[in-house]
Amino acid sequence: MNAMLEKVKPRTNEARYGAIRIDDVVKIYDPEGAAVMAVDHCTLDIKAGEICMIVGPSGCGKTSLLNAIAGFHDITSGSIHMDGEMLCGPGKPKAEPGADRIVVFQNGALFPWKTNLENVAFGPMMAGKLSKKEIHEKARAMMADAGLSGTEHNYPGEVSSGLRRRVEIVRALMNDPKVLLFDEPYRALDSLTRSVMHESLLEIYYKNKVTIFFITHDLEEAIFLGHKLVIMTSRPCRPKKILEVDIPHPRDYSVLTSPRFRELLEETSEVVHEEARKSFAAGEKEG
């Protein structure tokens, strides 16, 4: 762990791109029929290069918000801007998906029919600006940098789930994205692998300044990784509490036992628990 941190140079270049402004966004599914409101007048500002952690009860609408940023579906009203440019808003309900905002999916979405190397090379190959040789060289270098050498010619199904997540992040980084959108990527992993993934994510983050929008259920994970912690209300979701995590980066696992971490955890867990309870009660009523 410490060896890892020594390799990491302190932040030299601050990220200048990837600021996201979510303004009064509403998302209602199926507006004609049984309307389900997933996001309710949500307003949120994420600075360029910030790790923004979204915590909220199950089914509250976190993924809906992420999908709106990624451009997988439209929003009902409001607007989302990135670096001052409108992604979606009045007159343009759905953002265009693109390589500047890349999603890392809950269950992983490496293409099982492509080798890890081909997966990593996918984005630039689609863009078609460089030759295949150049792309593969860059992909190899990036993979080596993330400790993935030796797995280039394996298929994703042949390596452990922890490695797969890392390949997926490298695949995203190959495109110089401004924002990485994580939808509970570590939910299915055991706690041990998860802690390894946290360190490796931070390591990658320190090397590549990107904005990170990260959805999770796990409050400890949220405080450990994030600059900013956004606790959502139960469905429809809206920020209930926004908190700056004032533990300096770079962080390592000793943070988990620090008094400040414990304080923050105590401060927030009551809020999270309350929303989870509400969501549970609402679920009981509906069912």
């Binding site: 990624a70 451009g71 998906p97 693109g98 905002r101 999603v103 979405a109 996918f122 689609m126």
Partner: peptide, 12 residues
Amino acid sequence: SYTRAAYCLGAN
């Protein structure tokens, strides 16, 4: 999620 991932990565 495979098709979404491909669109995200800039595929047409």
